[in-house]
């Protein structure tokens, strides 16, 4: 059915709201094919219309096809855009390094986009302040702080962890710690630590 592929693209994202599903190259290609074939049909119709071989009622067919083209194009752009938004979320939650599990789900342009996005954000952060060396990290302090230390439980085994005041902690599974909130904020968001 006309436009069905484009709808599938959007549905795919909606069915997996929390993850970045594998880049659907196949479906994208089919959408582009569909657009191209509609476009070709339109060109042919237009030529026939201009030559007067068909009646004016064919003009509305032209419009319908054009609407289909626009819709498919829009769905494809929305697909790319929403994947970008999810990648962006990832940057804020986990940092600028993509694990291979996510990388395989992305197309080449998306990996490039991610790196450039991280670079842009880093440039912005280092440009803050008059001296330009304030070391602002916008991804910490996402919530208003309530206390200096937080009680956390380790959910997964993790390496030795050094806090900003130089104390080292060994984060083993099921161990309980009292850590500076700022330092472990990233680990909590990554699901390695859990607030108790």
């Amino acid at each position: 059915m006309l436009g069905e592929q484009a709808l599938n693209l959007i549905k795919e994202l909606e069915r997996n709201p929390d993850i970045i599903p594998p880049y659907n190259d196949d479906l994208m290609k089919r959408c582009i094919e569909e657009i191209k074939s509609l476009y070709q049909q339109n060109i042919n119709s237009l030529a026939e219309l201009n030559a007067g071989r068909v009646g004016a009622e064919h003009a509305s067919l032209l419009q319908a096809r054009h609407a289909a083209i626009e819709r498919t194009k829009r769905c494809m752009l929305a697909y790319i855009y929403h994947r970008q938004q999810r990648l962006k979320r990832y940057r804020w939650d986990y940092g600028g390094v993509l694990p291979s599990t996510i990388k395989v789900c992305l197309c080449e342009a998306e990996v490039r986009w991610f790196h450039e996005y991280c670079k842009n954000l880093a440039d912005f952060q280092s440009g803050l302040g008059e001296s330009g060396s304030c070391g602002v990290d916008l991804t910490v302090n996402m919530e208003p702080p309530k206390s200096l230390f937080v009680q956390v439980m380790c959910v997964k085994d993790y390496d030795e962890f050094e806090t900003s005041d130089g104390t080292r902690y060994l984060l083993k599974k099921n161990s309980l710690h009292s850590l500076p909130r700022q330092d472990c904020e990233h680990l909590i968001r990554q699901g390695i630590l859990e607030l108790v």
């Binding site: 752009l77 855009y81 970008q84 197309c107 342009a109 986009w113 996005y117 842009n120 440039d123 912005f124």
Partner: peptide, 20 residues
Amino acid sequence: EQRYAEKYTQLQEDSFKRCV
């Protein structure tokens, strides 16, 4: 911020172009 916005727009345009 303006530099950030310019770069961001350009990146977005780039990836739209490459993919679609």
